[in-house]
Amino acid sequence: MASQGTKRSYEQMETDGERQNATEIRASVGKMIDGIGRFYIQMCTELKLSDYEGRLIQNSLTIERMVLSAFDERRNKYLEEHPSAGKDPKKTGGPIYKRVDRKWMRELVLYDKEEIRRIWRQANNGDDATAGLTHMMIWHSNLNDTTYQRTRALVRTGMDPRMCSLMQGSTLPRRSGAAGAAVKGVGTMVMELIRMIKRGINDRNFWRGENGRKTRSAYERMCNILKGKFQTAAQRAMMDQVRESRNPGNAEIEDLIFLARSALILRGSVAHKSCLPACVYGPAVASGYDFEKEGYSLVGIDPFKLLQNSQVYSLIRPNENPAHKSQLVWMACNSAAFEDLRVLSFIRGTKVSPRGKLSTRGVQIASNENMDAMESSTLELRSRYWAIRTRSGGNTNQQRASAGQISVQPAFSVQRNLPFDKPTIMAAFTGNTEGRTSDMRAEIIRMMEGAKPEEMSFQGRGVFELSDERAANPIVPSFDMSNEGSYFFGDNAEEYDN
Score class of each variant (00 low, 15 high):
Gly5Ile: 00
Thr6Gln: 00
Asp16Lys: 01
Asp16Arg: 13
Ile25Tyr: 00
Ser28Asp: 00
Gly30Phe: 13
Gly30Leu: 01
Gly35Lys: 08
Ile36Ser: 10
Gly37Pro: 10
Gln42Asp: 04
Ser50Lys: 08
Ser50Ile: 00
Asp51Asn: 15
Asp51His: 02
Asp51Trp: 00
Arg55Leu: 14
Ile57His: 01
Leu61Glu: 01
Val67Thr: 08
Lys77Ile: 14
Tyr78Met: 02
Ser84Pro: 03
Asp88Glu: 08
Arg99Ser: 04
Arg118His: 09
Asn124Lys: 05
Gly126Lys: 03
Asp127Met: 11
His135Trp: 03
Met136Ile: 15
Thr146Arg: 01
Arg156Asp: 02
Pro161Cys: 04
Leu166Glu: 14
Leu166Asn: 03
Leu172Ile: 15
Pro173Tyr: 06
Val183Ala: 12
Glu192Met: 11
Gly200Trp: 08
Asn202Phe: 12
Asn202Pro: 03
Asp203Trp: 07
Phe206Arg: 05
Arg208Thr: 04
Thr232Lys: 13
Arg236Ser: 06
Arg236Asp: 01
Ala237Trp: 00
Gln241Lys: 09
Ile253Ser: 04
Ile257Gly: 10
Phe258His: 09
Arg261Cys: 07
Ser262Pro: 01
Gly268Ile: 13
Ser269Cys: 12
Leu276Val: 12
Ala278Gly: 14
Val285Asp: 02
Tyr289His: 15
Ser297Tyr: 04
Leu306Arg: 15
Ile316Pro: 07
Pro318Phe: 13
Glu320Trp: 09
Glu320Met: 11
Asn321Phe: 07
His324Cys: 02
His324Ser: 13
Val329His: 01
Ala332Cys: 06
Ala332Met: 08
Ala332Arg: 05
Asn334Leu: 03
Ala336Met: 03
Ala337Ser: 12
Phe346Trp: 11
Ile347Arg: 08
Gly349Glu: 11
Thr350Pro: 02
Arg355Asn: 10
Arg361His: 03
Glu369Met: 10
Glu369Asn: 07
Met371Arg: 00
Glu375Thr: 07
Leu381Trp: 03
Arg382Val: 06
Ser392Gly: 12
Pro410Glu: 00
Phe412Ser: 02
Pro419Val: 14
Asp421Pro: 00
Lys422Phe: 12
Thr424Pro: 06
Thr430Gly: 15
Gly435Leu: 02
Thr437Phe: 02
Met447His: 14
Met448Arg: 10
Ser457Asp: 15
Arg461Val: 02
Phe464Ile: 00
Asp468Pro: 09
Asn473Phe: 15
Ile475Phe: 01
Pro477Gln: 01
Ser478Met: 01
Asp480Val: 14
Glu484Leu: 00
